[in-house]
Amino acid sequence: MDDIAERKSEHIAIVTAGRGVQDTRGTGFDAIRFVHNALPELSLEEIDTGALFLGRRLAAPLMVSAMTGGPREAGRINLVIAEACGALGLALAVGSQRVAIEGRGAGGLGRELRAKAPNVPILGNLGAVQLGRGMGLDEARRAVDMLEADALMLHLNPLQEAIQSGGDRDFSGLLTRIEALARALPVPLGVKEVGAGLSASVGQKLLDAGAVILDVAGLGGTSWARVGAERGDDRLRRIAAPFFDWGIPTAEAVAAMAPLMRSGTKLIASGGVRHGLDVARAVRLGADLAGQAAGALPAAREGAEALTVHLSEVVEQLRIAMFCTGSRDLAALRRAPLA
């Protein structure tokens, strides 16, 4: 377990230093171009960026995505994220709660997060692969209760597990276990990838199994193959190298998944979201929210004030994109003409 904590601490350092980033052009977002509206016929100040998610009103369709889970530094980072998201009215999703569930350090994953962010959605997080290694409903309930979370996300990360030393590599039988957990859990269950994307076929299976939130977490953000290689020896780096840019581009994954979403389900676009224009592009493609992780991590490590400034700028960029497309609200943005 100490190895897990050390590994996650190294992950934070590698991602912050930019050594795990894929080519952000790989997201596909830059290919999405809006038709500029030189006569928007509305005031910038009257634009409503608000969104509804898990029964809570958000100031914008933005979430600080899962990025930490276990190391000592995570305690401070998680509190910083909660404080900034609580102040701005944005959603937050924590990193893996496995270490906390197994009693090896809370990592800031306790009810102090809810105290700092009492009115916004908080999403818990466990590895789906752990459902085949002894975790089940009891652990999922504990993950929800320790945060007073609005939902629980299960992360799927076969590429990361295949490459990293000591990875959990048996993903057999998980869909049946996900379905059983979705039926029994008292809060909504979601599923996310961690940087390689969810395909439409996998998304359809997860929706059929009862998942109500899907986070595509696609290609173009953090490459966990690169992160794993950074931590490994020469042999591991050689094995990992062909997979540095493996995955489904985020924009492509969102566009493919959006038509499959049903009433009451939510789609999150994460993976290489750089700024508010990418948020606007994600919404236009059909996402309900956009999630940012690595893009927010440097500011989160600096402190709540820096993160608040960063996220405020992302929201303002979204507002400008809406203004320049004549979109009074998100419903109008979803109909904005594309070039």
Rank of each mutant, 00 (worst) to 15 (best):
A287C: 09
V279N: 04
G195F: 01
F171Q: 04
N125H: 12
V273A: 01
E252F: 04
D138G: 07
L113V: 08
R111N: 08
H155D: 09
A100W: 03
R231F: 14
R274L: 05
I47S: 08
P61A: 05
R238L: 15
A304G: 11
E316L: 12
S96M: 10
D48Q: 10
A149V: 05
S65G: 13
D288E: 11
P121G: 01
V21I: 14
G89K: 07
A38N: 10
P298Y: 04
N119S: 15
K192F: 07
E305Q: 15
L123E: 00
A5R: 15
G55F: 09
I14H: 11
G134D: 03
M146K: 03
R177H: 09
V202L: 15
Q130A: 06
A5S: 15
S312E: 12
R335C: 13
A269K: 01
V21W: 11
M63S: 07
G220P: 08
M67D: 00
A143E: 02
L39S: 12
G167H: 09
L181K: 06
A282V: 06
V315I: 15
S263V: 13
R142N: 02
G166F: 07
A293W: 03
R19Y: 12
V283R: 02
V254P: 00
I178R: 04
R141A: 02
T27V: 07
G18H: 10
V129H: 01
E102A: 08
F323V: 11
V283E: 04
V254R: 02
K192W: 07
A13T: 14
G26E: 00
Q97M: 07
G190F: 10
G210T: 12
A251G: 09
L277V: 10
P242F: 03
R169M: 06
L88T: 10
L267G: 03
